[in-house]
């Protein structure tokens, strides 16, 4: 009954057609799942797309088995500081980072398999009052952190064996940086969104802060997920974690904005609102290419085509409870949908 109430009939077809359940994994030892991610892992010369699940005190690596089943390969036990999120490193193998902390991120750790001594290891990468962290191509990690006096924006390069090399600092803006996104197709460009709703652009090679552009009052509390440059414009995919259905016209969950970095002027390209009938707010989400997925306070997961600005699929809360996590598994077109009890469902989209 609950499912029927939350899923208007017009969305039923799209729900059935767009997402197909491929497999399910359940960590019976996990009491409270906090994050899930897909990662390339190689063992005995065989490279596979594996799944990493995190609960507050441990992180587990799962590999695909026959008949759509999953087997746990290894579990890293963490200390007393709870895991907050998994930080995937794009285009890497046998490496994944995690952020730990209480209310905010206090440290970032690297989890890895070392072929040097044939063992799974963990290594401390960074500590501090960390506001945002993102894995970059080329086995690098960017983070923003605050001391009493100033903000530090730093890039750390990680070696294959996990040892961190010398860091590089980027020129910090005055406002706190809350999220980062690499600019696709531009190796040396990075963007961030700040606490006062600005987009900042850096040159990664020189560390220069190139531009600060205000997102605009019609898109408050924006978090950047993706950026790419085309025809002299910088396109940025933003989410709005406070988006409500009642404000769906003026307060979308996701939007694409085109900025002219030369003039700092911008214009909205598309916006994606919460599907009708879903009371409440956007909770958290993920973007891959032109697809966005988000968990809503109704307990459902909604999927949007960002170029069309349309909701294309809907996963209502299942009999076991509400969804709590939605992550794209790259490079496959799969959605990882997680529940608090440690159940992760893999859907083909």
């Amino acid at each position: 009954d609950t499912v029927e109430q939350l899923t208007p009939a017009l969305l039923d077809d799209l729900r059935e057609e767009s997402l197909q359940l491929v497999s399910k994994l359940k960590d019976s030892s996990s009491s409270c799942a906090v994050d899930v991610s897909a990662v390339w892992w190689e063992a005995a010369g065989c490279r596979e797309l594996c799944v990493v699940t995190a609960c507050e005190s441990s992180v587990s690596l799962w590999k695909p088995l026959a008949s759509d089943r999953w087997g746990k390969v290894y579990t890293w036990q963490l200390g007393e500081i709870p895991v907050i999120q998994i930080v995937p490193l794009p285009d890497t193998c046998n490496l994944v980072c995690i952020a730990l902390g209480d209310l905010e991120i206090g440290e970032v750790r690297l989890l890895l398999y070392s072929s040097e001594n044939d063992s799974f290891k963990q290594a401390l990468v960074k500590t501090g009052n960390i506001k945002a962290v993102l894995g970059l191509k080329g086995r690098r990690l960017v983070s923003s952190s605050r001391t009493m006096q100033e903000q530090q924006v730093e890039i750390v390069s990680l070696s294959e064996t996990g040892r961190s090399r010398d860091g590089q600092t980027l020129m910090p803006p005055e406002e706190t940086v809350l999220a980062f996104a690499e600019v696709e197709g531009m190796r040396d460009a990075l963007v961030g969104t700040t606490a006062v709703n600005s987009i900042v652009v850096w040159n990664l090679k020189t560390g220069q802060l190139l531009k600060k552009m205000h997102v605009g009052y019609s898109h408050p509390a924006s978090i950047c997920h993706r950026a790419y440059s085309d025809s002299g414009l910088l396109f940025v995919v933003l989410s709005h974690p406070h988006a409500k259905e009642s404000e769906s016209c003026g307060n979308p969950a996701f939007c694409v904005i085109a900025f002219n970095p030369k003039t700092a002027r911008s214009t909205g390209v598309t916006s994606s609102s919460l599907p009708p009938g879903h009371a409440g707010r956007y909770l958290e989400g993920d973007v891959k290419d032109a697809s966005a997925a988000a968990v809503l306070t109704s307990g459902a997961i909604a999927v949007w085509d960002l170029l069309l600005g349309q909701c294309t699929a809907l996963l209502p809360p299942g009999p076991a409870g509400s969804w709590s996590l939605a992550r794209w598994a790259t490079p496959s077109a799969c959605l990882l949908a997680g529940q608090r009890d440690g159940t992760v469902c893999l859907y083909r989209y």
Binding site: M171, Q208, L209, A258, N260, K262
Partner: peptide, 23 residues
């Protein structure tokens, strides 16, 4: 979106801003 809304557009915006910005 039109150029009149966004101002003059440059395909080399990244290189031009890098040349102008303080280092």
């Amino acid at each position: 979106c039109s150029e009149s809304d966004l101002g003059p557009i440059s395909l080399n915006w990244f290189e031009e801003l890098s040349a102008e910005a303080p280092s």
